[in-house]
Design a protein around this nucleic acid. Structure first.
Lengths: 256, 256
DNA sequence: CGAGGAGTTGAAGCAGGTCAAGCGCTGTGG
DNA sequence: CCACAGCGCTTGACCTGCTTCAACTCCTCG
């Protein structure tokens, strides 16, 4: 595995040793040296937590959006549903990711968010975000980085949907998730454990369920991935990267 | 800035300061009451301008990204090109829009940006953005709103590509652009003057050029739009909104 | 007056959608 | 302990929306 990631240099940097703490502190701490004060502010920020069961919305499109959430455990999705029942998943949120960081106090949510697996979230008062920007310049640039990364991820999703074939879309998404899990230390080698169904994948990739299944089978037949019950193994990451034109730089951490 | 642009053809450094109030001040000023100090800060922020000719890149994927740009005049696109030459346009930037607001100092641009029509841009030192957050809380929440809106626009683009038919995609995009132009006061009634070609539209909508042309013809034949040389008229906005499931709330300004 | 870019149209092919059926697991209740 | 309901996955057959290839028409500009 270490040689597989050798061509993806600069991704895994760990300035802040993972001394327990929240995923967000680990994430931002891997970017820059956080002071004790900053860490304790961030930790205190996340004191108020809720547990959300799989399938439950915690953010509903069209309703007023008064809180910001930070994923502590589990997976969630941001999505919209059209009137004909078709759903489009915009992105996945993993531990350490922030939902609703840039809040528009008077506006309504432009998407819904739901837990994919049983999740724990911190509930944050968005007014305290401006506080971060005022008081903690290093944290502020960390949040700015996190925002740029969210844009890159959503931009990649746009390219997937607009210009990749079904097989390449699937490969691209698997690589994105594998890299993101890798960066938060939730991977075991080339194995991926995904909480979503093929129906969720279809709604992410803009495909039908049937064709998503066939694309998965195609990846399997060409030896690029293999599957067991709950796990997917990326058998040839270089080949996947090439066929999907995946660019790991888009997910990179930055150093200082 | 002139040293950065010296190697880029078609980019002309501009020494004279902007005259009246900039589009960005108008945009943020429509959201909240800005103080004299905030306005003069924002105006001073945009003193350093460049002119970019149509088709010229001012932001190149994979290169280091050291500056933030603010559109003053003209249109530009954010896009990526795949190895087979296929291009995906991610979004359009109109006067008052900011490119590279959330900068990751050490990272590379994850997309390119080019002028669609001859454009004037302000070149901004991204370090001064953190200054805004520290010193001007009202401006800061304005930037936060602008960011949330960018996400909404890119999210809409994702839904378009993932779950709408070709005809609906086109209608949805036309509505987005019409609303955005309306909000910055660049519209005359139901007429749209677009600087892009059908090939650009195709690369935005994830379609082939031929099918984009046919989708446009289909909208025309069903009486939803009409066209002259350089203009498109939205003949029945309600019907367009319904067929494209367009939600204008995603583009809304906020009040207070 | 000729070249080249933008738009338009026709014809044929195919990637992916839709409909339909069946499989295997898991949980639940009789 | 079995039955059976339901969900997730798989596969076959057919259909269609979009792509591709190829031509032709404008229009503009040199």
């Amino acid at each position: 595995m270490s040689e597989d990631s050798s061509n993806l240099q600069g991704i895994v940097t760990n300035l802040q040793p993972p001394t327990a703490s929240s995923p967000l502190v680990r994430k931002l701490g891997s970017l820059c040296l956080l002071s004790e004060e900053e860490i304790s502010f961030l930790e205190g920020w996340q004191n108020n937590t809720i547990d959300v069961e799989a399938g439950v919305d915690f953010f509903v499109e069209g309703t007023e959006r008064k809180t910001t959430f930070i994923m502590l455990e589990g997976w969630s999705i941001r999505y919209t549903v059209l009137s004909n029942g078709r759903r489009q998943i915009l992105s996945y949120a993993l531990p350490g990711d922030i939902l609703g960081l840039h809040i528009n106090f008077n506006a309504k949510a432009t998407y819904s968010a739901a837990a994919l697996s049983t999740s724990r979230l911190a509930v944050v008062d968005p007014r305290r975000i401006l506080e971060i920007y005022q008081k903690f310049p290093i944290l502020a640039s960390g949040l700015s980085w996190a925002t740029a990364r969210e844009f890159a991820i959503l931009g990649d999703q746009t390219v997937r949907l607009g210009r990749l074939s079904a097989k390449a879309r699937l490969a691209h998404l698997l690589l994105e998730l594998w890299h993101r899990l890798e960066l938060i230390g939730n991977n075991e080698g080339n194995w991926l454990q995904l909480p979503m169904t093929q129906s969720d994948l279809a709604d992410t990739l803009g495909l039908s369920l049937v064709h998503t299944n066939r694309s998965m089978a195609a990846l399997r037949k060409s030896g690029l991935v293999s599957m067991t019950k709950n796990h997917i193994k990326l058998e040839n990451i270089d080949a996947l990267v090439q066929m999907a034109e995946f660019n790991p730089d888009h997910l990179a951490e930055f150093s200082i």
